[in-house]
Design a protein around this nucleic acid. Structure first.
Lengths: 231, 231
DNA sequence: GCAAATTAATGATTTATTCAAG
DNA sequence: CTTGAATAAATCATTAATTTGC
């Protein structure tokens, strides 16, 4: 019966599965609703939702209820942690970047560009583990409380200020107009016109949240994607 | 495709080119990074990337920023469209099955499960006819919510409050005991084997990390814990 | 073959949401 | 309840592909 509706509910007969296992369709719809604004549906809403979702697989009202509860909570949690991590990473990387930038001045055979190091400095390896030892609520400090930059002990005050600034104007679009890094010395191997380059000193850039994605995991879906372990 | 090694004019001498045109090398590197997991680089990361890419042609931080933004968005868009399509197809098939199963020649307004109507379904029953229209749009929200959906376009806070209240009602457990909203005869939900009789003292069933969302880490339960008060 | 015209991609802006801090 | 921070979604705009008439 209903081959089309053959969601792979792995618990048809096993009867051992004690918990609901949302089918992709259910999950997608739930997320869609969440995105649309549903946060804590009331009883009748839950009934509706459950009725609808039941077409895609076994489901009960409580599942829906809990799903929204959990999703909301985890969303919040995720965001909070993201902010924390981002700050720490940023501080750390700032130092690294400076170092790297100074250190990197050699020519690479076109297309070779040591992405390795670049990526290495980026999200791939979240050494945050060591930084985030204290899992408890990482208080974000908008204005950097005087005792919260333990990892940056090496970062000069200048860097700190830089960061502050860059973090500051994200949508002021200030960084956009003045942005332009001065390339070491372009070997002019560029295939494009690449006329002139203002060669300005680097300026502010948009702070764009953590790089380590913990939020798009839904769509990224790839088998071998690094997709950082989140934590 | 696109030898890309040709003078593409456009930007001859002055800055006539109004927008950045990535060189193949730059593009390649960017894509490599994206593949490697970089999604939303922060200020310092953008600095770094820009510095590196400037080796291959003129580029500014904002270009890098925008590139990642767009790439990510369009990637997601693509995937979403795919999912929608699939979902709709399944719905159609479901409907078809059901249609044949029950009324060989009658249009039955069975629960239609298209996202939009789903969202709107809280309010009123949507026209089932649209189900067979096979509309590939599947656009999320925007346009205008068909039904009402508490806060799709209204004051989120207000709606939130509304829902908060409803949560209280929830705890009446009424909906929980009612659980399993039996679909007409859902061709696929004949799995009422285990949960036919909802227990009053239900255990908590957090969303299980099905396949899409990899919620591997549940650290602090925080408010996510349903904790059904039981009054 | 080649440009004008048309369409598809994609860079750049704007707008709407979301959560949390004050 | 308001506001700040930071997107992600939607949209605008320009460049590259392509189609088409000559």
């Amino acid at each position: 019966m209903s081959p089309a509706a053959n969601f792979s509910s792995s618990n048809s007969s096993s009867s051992s599965s004690s918990r609901w296992c949302p089918t992709p369709e259910q999950l997608m719809i739930l997320e869609e609703m969440y995105r649309a604004g549903v946060r804590t549906p009331n009883a009748s809403q839950i009934q509706h939702i459950t009725a609808q979702l039941s077409f895609y697989g076994k489901i009960e009202g409580k599942n829906v209820f809990y799903w929204f509860q959990n999703h909301k909570a985890r969303d919040r949690q995720k965001l909070r942690r993201k902010l924390c991590k981002q700050l720490q990473l940023e501080q750390q990387q700032l130092y690294h970047n400076y170092y790297h930038y100074r250190h990197h001045h050699n020519h690479q055979p076109l297309l070779m560009l040591n992405q390795q190091s670049l990526l290495g400095h980026f999200d791939q390896s979240p050494p945050a583990s060591s930084l985030l030892q204290h899992k408890p609520s990482c208080h974000h400090h908008n204005s950097s409380p005087p005792g919260f930059l333990p990892q940056v002990r090496e970062t000069p005050a200048a860097a700190e200020r830089e960061m502050e600034k860059s973090v500051m104007n994200m949508y002021g679009h200030d960084w956009m107009t003045t942005t332009d890094v001065g390339p070491p010395s372009s070997p002019a191997c560029c295939t494009r016109s690449t006329a002139t380059r203002p060669l300005k000193t680097l300026q502010l850039f948009p702070i764009t949240s953590a790089d380590l994605k913990a939020e798009d995991n839904f769509e990224e879906g790839e088998e071998s994607t690094p997709s950082v372990p989140t934590d």
